[in-house]
């Protein structure tokens, strides 16, 4: 464990909790893509099946359980408890265009052609694009609530910190996982446009709105 991975994980946790609290406090999931949240629930489920087969550390196990629990709680709030506030008309990204190619890629490019390994690879590829329905929704409505932008910033920060973590581990631990690194870099690039808007607008006290 290094400081970049730890702060990355905590930033990820902060993002998840910010989103849960936003929905809970406002009793509304307006502006939130339920599709992205379903994709994240699938990501955690397929990646953390190793909870049943291998133990790494108490930290590792507890974080996995918390991530999975929060992901399903978020999906429950959006599609069940606060369903009336869910903006399905604007959440129109076609997720099959992500899931099908990502599934095919996981079968073709992986470290080992075994059931658990392919599911793990699938989760890595899927996570890299799972935020697209959310970004698509914001570009479609042309705006995002400030709290939603904090959520996205924490998610993007988590990805950026993981890249620093990989550079660290490459030099100091002789560790690298090419699949995770390539997918992680792709994922971080997807946030760049948002980072720009976050710094130039939200941090200066303005609402995030896009020109029509």
């Amino acid at each position: 464990m290094n400081i970049f991975r730890l702060t990355g994980d905590l930033s990820h946790l902060a993002a998840i909790i910010i989103l849960l609290l936003k929905i809970w406090k406002t009793r509304s999931c307006a502006g939130i893509s339920g599709k992205s949240q379903i994709l994240f629930a699938i990501v955690f489920t397929t990646r953390y099946l190793d909870l049943l087969s291998s133990f790494i550390s108490l930290y590792n196990t507890s974080m996995k359980v918390i991530y999975i629990g929060c992901a399903y709680a978020t999906v429950y709030l959006i599609y069940m408890k606060f369903r009336a506030t869910y903006d399905g008309n604007h959440d129109s990204f076609r997720v099959e265009f992500l899931v099908v190619p990502v599934g095919g890629l996981a079968v073709l490019i992986n470290h080992d052609f075994s059931f658990l390994e392919i599911l793990w690879t699938f989760s890595i590829y899927l996570e890299s694009v799972a935020i697209l329905p959310q970004l698509f929704m914001i570009s479609k409505t042309g705006e995002a609530e400030t709290i939603t932008t904090h959520y996205l910033f924490c998610l993007g920060l988590y990805r950026a910190l993981y890249i620093v973590n990989w550079i660290w581990r490459y030099y100091f631990e002789a560790f690298f996982d090419l699949i995770a690194i390539v997918a992680g870099v792709v994922q971080t690039i997807l946030y760049c446009d948002f980072f720009y808007l976050y710094v130039t607008k939200v941090l200066k006290g303005k609402k995030l709105s896009l020109p029509a």
């Binding site: 291998s54 790494i56 974080m63 560790f175 690298f176 995770a180």
Partner: peptide
């Protein structure tokens, strides 16, 4: 050698 893919990350 390099340690590839030990899956200790989240």
């Amino acid at each position: 050698g390099f340690n590839i893919n030990p899956k200790d990350e989240l």
